[in-house]
């Protein structure tokens, strides 16, 4: 920091200020310090509310280490049957739920677009979207398991329901952002409502709908690994059992499979989206 750095030092320019302060982000000093104080107070209280049982954590360290090292020696075979079954359930429920969800989402999405639907239909469809988006998949899965019993059918229903909210919302926003001129041009030809949707709306929305569907397929697979925890089938159930029994080798195997499938599906959906556009 010394020596050569100083050699080319500037001289003070007479008559000019020698200090400068960057204008603060919040102009009022009072508000600024109040904000600092609030953040500090939150951190103190928030961190204070975290009660840590240090002896339990201490005991956990070897288990954590065992889990990490399990990633380098994953055990695909001793629970091979369970893993295979769970994977089958996850993949089949992902595919069927995505397809069913999209089929249902298209009418709901059209209905939730302000420029296409009459007011009562709009309100009803928006309500469906809001309900589906507000709850985590796992909460919905609990309800469906209570209704149709344990197994992948509950998972299928859960993922379909979540897909409807996700796709319908984005689809509706897309339709609302449509290029007005193209829409008007087709309407001016005297087309019926269905023809109008088919010729003016569909071509503009289709490429993005395909992209969204692939994205949702990806999300549904990840979620299918979770909802098994509450009995809705899929590889999550296998994972849950393995972790409960401290079988970290098998758990690591399942996690590696999930990561691999997610990576492959991201790569494939990226390629397909590029191809569609």
């Amino acid at each position: 920091m010394s020596g050569p750095r100083q050699t080319a030092a500037l001289a003070v320019a007479p008559g000019y200020p020698t200090t400068w302060k960057r204008p603060p982000f919040i102009a009022s000093a009072a508000w600024r310090y109040a904000l600092y104080a609030a953040v500090l107070a939150y951190l103190v209280v928030g961190l204070g509310s975290v009660e840590v049982n240090w002896t339990r954590v201490w005991e956990g360290i070897p288990r954590g280490w065992a889990f990490l090292s399990a990633f380098f020696s994953p055990d695909f075979t001793s629970r091979g049957g369970d893993i295979w079954l769970g994977l089958q359930e996850s993949l089949t429920m992902t595919l069927t739920a995505t397809v069913a969800g999209i089929l249902l989402a298209i009418p709901v999405g059209v209905g939730a677009a302000r420029n296409l639907a009459p007011a009562p239909v709009y309100a009803a469809c928006r309500a469906v979207v809001a309900l589906s988006r507000s709850f985590q998949e796992i909460v919905i899965a609990i309800l469906f398991v209570a209704m149709v019993g344990f197994g992948p059918l509950a998972g299928f229903l859960t993922l379909s329901f979540a897909t409807v909210g996700f796709i319908a919302k984005l689809l509706a926003e897309d339709i609302e952002d449509l290029d007005e001129r193209q829409v008007e041009a087709v309407r001016a030809t005297g087309a019926s409502w269905l023809q109008w949707v088919n010729y003016a709306v569909q071509p503009q929305v289709m490429p993005r709908l395909i992209g969204l569907s692939l994205y949702r397929l990806d999300i549904n697979f990840r979620e299918s690994a979770v909802i098994g925890i509450v009995g809705a089938g899929g590889i999550g159930a296998t994972l849950n059992t393995a972790i409960d029994r401290y079988e970290f080798d098998s758990a690591a195997a399942v996690l590696l499979i999930i990561i691999a499938i997610v990576m492959v599906s991201e790569y494939v959906s990226g390629a397909v989206r590029k191809w569609v556009q």
Partner: peptide, 9 residues
């Protein structure tokens, strides 16, 4: 790739 619920588990 791994949901926060699985991390929590």
């Amino acid at each position: 790739s791994i949901n926060s619920l699985i991390w929590a588990l």
